[in-house]
């Protein structure tokens, strides 16, 4: 039981993620979470704004059900299957975080300095809105996110996915090393 309640090592987690991919493949589907954002746009009337959103929502229902399941999974995993809420990051990471004035790694799963409702000032609100926008815009521009490109695409040796993952890192490294020092220091 302790094994389940503590943080899962990468060599368990990675193969389990590809198992999710295969469970979908054997049902005639593909593993790609960000497509749901497009479906949500279609449901909310986006089909009136662009032909990009003229899709048969019915064909994508399974993916919305999948993502609804993952919300429930997040609830179960966090509340019933976790002993500690904190994350087992390396000591060096902790030192960098402390230099940014972020201390919540000691008790929390994600930085409360950024996400806690009580701390939602203009700055944090801007971070969440801009971050979300970049994710939604970028994933659809690139035609997929971590699940569709990094896992599904690279495991099929798709060249396009390799470019996309290079892009993910160009963006991620830029944010972490060039923007974060301005934001947090």
């Amino acid at each position: 039981m302790d094994l389940i309640l503590s943080s899962w090592p990468w060599y368990i987690s990675g193969p389990l993620i590809s198992m999710i991919m295969f469970l979908l493949i054997f049902n005639g589907k593909t593993f790609g979470v960000s497509s749901n954002l497009r479906t949500i746009c279609s449901i909310c009337g986006g089909d009136k704004l662009s032909i990009f959103f003229k899709i048969k929502v019915k064909d994508h229902m399974w993916n919305l059900i999948f993502i609804f399941g993952s919300v429930i999974g997040g609830f179960i995993g966090f509340n019933f299957l976790s002993q500690s809420k904190s994350v087992e990051i390396s000591d060096k990471t902790k030192i960098i975080l402390e230099s940014y004035g972020i201390e919540s790694f000691k008790n929390d799963y994600i930085p409360t300095e950024l996400f806690h409702i009580e701390n939602l000032g203009i700055n944090n609100l801007a971070i969440l809105i801009i971050g979300g926008f970049l994710i939604g815009f970028g994933t659809r521009y690139a035609g997929g996110c971590t699940s569709g490109h990094a896992i599904t695409g690279l495991s099929q040796f798709q060249v396009g996915s390799l470019y996309a993952v290079i892009g993910f890192f160009l963006g991620g490294l830029t944010m972490t090393h060039l923007v974060f020092p301005f934001l947090f220091l």
Binding site: G77, G131, G132, Y141, A142, T146, S147, A164, L170, T174
Partner: peptide, 24 residues
Amino acid sequence: YIIGGSIFGLGWALVGACPGPMFV
């Protein structure tokens, strides 16, 4: 892929979640 991927990467690092984990 490069342009869209980079835009996504900026957001991924900023809020620390990609589309799956957002819902989780």
